[in-house]
Structures are given as structure tokens and as C-alpha cells.
Design a binder for these strands. Structure first.
Lengths: 132, 132
DNA sequence: CTCCTATTGTTGGATGTCAAACAATAATTA
DNA sequence: TAATTATTGTTTGACATCCAACAATAGGAG
């Protein structure tokens, strides 16, 4: 019995399930191909900080649809690699202002060039009907 | 500073990120609206067993793009609710054959009627460009 | 038949995520 | 101004998921 023999019924047309499968495939393709061992989420974080220097953690989390608390260990890791840093925000003693370090910008630049190609591969892999 | 003010750069066009956001919204809408407190994955499991009576755990996991090991606790829960059962498979002493119980079919039927409406709501919420 | 390989379900460890609670600080209201 | 409410970053606990390993069983090669 191969996977192709399974009756998916109306399930294949349910939007939630479709999206779920598509996202899993996209994530998998990304992590497999990325030799710079950076989770896809970390790459997104670096990109957003680069585009929005001084952004705080809550806004960053919101823009990625992640919880604030989820952001904390991610930023801890990126900061321990010295790819970005938390600076105290002038005018709000609760918040941090996030900035990429020079090393962070360098890493982001190198990884970024590969992502364009990868997206094309993922799009191809999903097939035309799913991508559309 | 609202979320709308964040510069997403080319990120919005990256397929992986788009899918991720779409799926999160879909899942959230599903779980919020579902008064029968069943995670969306559990609903999918019941549907697939219903459509493929006697399917084994590995095939089920494969068809949902989940690991075999992930399936175990899900089935444990569904079985403890007496919504489906593991029967010994004749001819293969390693595998289980999965079947819905009468209660399981009843629950699935009730939940199923609501899902159609929900999918439409999710599609609406995402907006036409994202859905397409 | 006998060995070797593949498959099935399971466990345990690692990671990613969320939700709830918290203290510190900011913003709003009375 | 004083009191209340909201926000920020963090910790903790609960899940979901993956991967690697395992024992039991099945299938194939010799």
C-alpha cells in the first residue's frame, strides 16, 4: 500500500490542511539546503532587524506572528553569536532596541543570496496547482 | 508604532514566510471557533481513518506529513476517548489496523458540518491576494 | 532454510511554540 | 497628582513535533 492509494476525500480541498502541507514542505526544503546552519526563523529575524534597526522585541515577534516569549531564546542565541545586540532604548526603560552587528550583516548577506534560489525550488516542488 | 509600520522588505514575497503566516491564521481560526475542543490535527486523523478504515499508523502519519512517532500520542488520546481503536492486523503482527468507533463517527459528523463554514471564513480572512 | 535488510510501533531526548504569570515601567484616567 | 490600566521582557509549564534508537516482525537474497 503506497501513499498514493490513500483516499483523501474532500480533505485535499480544505484550506487549512493544504497550507499545512505546503508549509512543511517549504520549511523542510529550506533547512535541508541551508549549509549555514541557521533555522529559517533566525534568518527572518535578522532580515527584519536589518530592515528595521532599533525595533523592539514585541514588535519583532508580532511581525512574525510569534509570541513575545518565543522571541527571547531566539534573540539570546543570535546575541550569543554576536550577530545582533540588545541596546537600552532611550526614552523607554522597559524595552530593548535591536541592532545587527557588522558580523550579523555579513552573515545575513551571505545567506540572503541563497534564499532567492531556494524559494524557486520550493515553488517548483509544490507543483503549480498548490502554489497558485 | 503599529505593526503596519514595519518594513517587511522583500520578505512578504518569500513563499515560506507567506505560507507560515497563512497557516497560523488558519489554525487559529479553526481552534477558536471549534467548541468541540478538538485540535485540527485530530480532526484530520479521524477523517482519514473514516475514509480509509484499517489503515495503519505509518501510512496515516505519512499522509499527514507527520512522523510515525508523532502519531502515537495522538492516537492514544483518540483511543482513550473511544473515538477510534487499534485492532490487531491479521497477517502482520507488527501493525495495527485503525477503525473509528460509532462514537467517533458521530463526533466526526458533528464537527464536519462546521468545518465547511470555517474554511470559508479563513479564506475570507486571508484576503484574496494571499488566498490565491 | 539462513542471513540480511526493511518496516512497524514505540520510547526518549531535543527543539520550537504558546499561554499564563510576573516585576518594572509607561500611559491613561479620575 | 493619584490610581488604574497597558506594555515590555522574562520565566515557567504544557504541548507538538522531529530524530535516533530499539525490539519485534516481515520480506528477500544467498
Amino acid at each position: 500500500m503506497s501513499t498514493d492509494d490513500i483516499d483523501l476525500g474532500g480533505l485535499v480541498n480544505m484550506i487549512g490542511v493544504e497550507l499545512r502541507i505546503a508549509q512543511i514542505l517549504a520549511d523542510k526544503a529550506f533547512s535541508v539546503s541551508q549549509e549555514a546552519k541557521m533555522p529559517s526563523g533566525h534568518f527572518t529575524v535578522l532580515t527584519l532587524i536589518n530592515l528595521n534597526p532599533g525595533i523592539n522585541q514585541s514588535m519583532l515577534a508580532k511581525s512574525m506572528y510569534l509570541d513575545r516569549s518565543t522571541m527571547v531564546p531566539i534573540l539570546d542565541q543570535l546575541e550569543s553569536k554576536a550577530w545582533m545586540e540588545r541596546r537600552k532604548k532611550p526614552g523607554d526603560r522597559r524595552a530593548y532596541a535591536l541592532y545587527l552587528t557588522p558580523q550579523g550583516k555579513k552573515v545575513l548577506g551571505e545567506a540572503g543570496t541563497r534564499v532567492g534560489e531556494l524559494e524557486a525550488i520550493v515553488a517548483e516542488k509544490m507543483g503549480p496547482q498548490k502554489r497558485d
